[in-house]
Nucleic acid binder design. Structure first.
Lengths: 70, 70
DNA sequence: ATAAAATGTAAAACATATTTGACATTTTTC
DNA sequence: GAAAAATGTCAAATATGTTTTACATTTTAT
């Protein structure tokens, strides 16, 4: 799962620290997500999308992985 | 965070078990999410939205909680 | 070139999501 | 109304996300 948080954040000219404060998470969390260390929770995804004036579906690029049906 | 998984799933006439299989998660997970016990991960949210022919922003109703800035 | 700000990273503790197995209740089908 | 299918729920174990503290490196501003 990729995302363009960094791009939109920079366009808005705010730091990871600032986005973290507005999102009520730690700076490390924003940093980790921007660097694709892990995905945010659904709640945080919605919060960040809201703060960056976009939506979850546009902010995150989900690649469908097809399912070998059990 | 609310969602309309149950509604779309029933419209599609598949069981929780079937949606679980297609999503590669357990039936209990689908059940818990439909009953708002907890939110799915971002990945699972995207997967379910995809399977139900919708998107994350439409499938989940996120209520913005305003932030008492630190 | 130096100081300040921003970013990267790591480990331990804690929080939340998911699985598995099991059983009870409700709904659907015949 | 009995059987089968679907749904609800619980506990313990595992996986993943988040916080805190701390420090190193990179970038920006002067």
């Amino acid at each position: 799962m990729k995302n363009n948080i960094r791009g939109l954040r920079k366009a808005m000219k705010i730091s990871q620290e600032e986005l973290a404060k507005r999102s009520n998470v730690s700076r490390q969390t924003i940093n980790a997500i921007e660097n694709n260390k892990y995905d945010p929770t659904l709640n945080l995804a919605f919060t960040i999308a809201y703060l960056l004036n976009t939506n979850v579906d546009d902010l995150f690029q989900f690649e469908i992985k097809e399912n070998k049906r059990r």
